[in-house]
Amino acid sequence: MLESVRRLGRLALRFLQRLGKATLFLLGLLGALAALCKRPGLIVKQLYSLGVLSLPIIAMSGLFVGMVLGLQGYANLVDFGATSTLGTVVALSLVRELGPVLAALLYAARAGSALTAEIGLMKVTEQLACMQMMAVDPFARVFAPRFVAGFIAMPLLAGIFTAIGVLGGYFVAVKQLGVDSGAFWSQMQASVGLVDDVIKGVVIKSIAFGWVANWIAVFEGYDAIPTSEGISLATTRTVVNTALVVLALDFVLTAIFFGV
């Protein structure tokens, strides 16, 4: 009994220790931002590998999620003769929840894990130590550009995911199931608010998710034990922790913005 309480205490302490380390790391990242402003090229390069290369999976997933929403929504609404509200159903689910959340989860799997692995491998192969010995700060040269690029990419990806999802829903509802096109869009427009739904949903949520997803990914790489096993553990932790934190954060944000 006493032993299990102690184990709980140890776990809590270890968690706090890691959280403290991650916070210090974040401060280091923010401290390197000034130096980064002089080198926008570094961010562009990372925007390519984090944003552009994530585009296919984001676009495909958005399309399918939108199409599924269209089908499911139709199947449920058709019994009440309310298929004209399908546009509302599809758009609200995407804009408020599915767009930012799924985009963040896909981002963690596609880009976050790669980020962790890349930084972890740079650590294993002494590239980071070498950079330090060359008097180049890895925070300014390696960590901060990746963090900032990811932070910029996340809202863009979430926006693309959501927009393509709405188009996917439109395709299924209007082209396949014969819902009236005008009703689809006008019902959607009537109930989706720019500030209340689009800004509070996609924009703010994806900014928050981008912050934590990239923080976790870069930190896990930085903190990885420099062995092949350590890196594989770190990549796994990136995906798992990002998923957990994003979903928990989503609950909090939903409660704040959309809770009654």
């Binding site: 927009a163 427009q189 720019l194 689009v198």
Partner: peptide, 28 residues
């Protein structure tokens, strides 16, 4: 690379433009 990133950012902006104009009602 710069071109690809430019296209990516433009796509993102178009997506938000669509969300603002077509999905929600900006008039309000």
């Amino acid at each position: 690379l710069e071109l690809a990133v430019g296209v990516f950012v433009a796509l993102g902006l178009v997506a938000f433009f669509m969300l603002a104009m077509k999905v929600s009602n900006i008039a309000e």
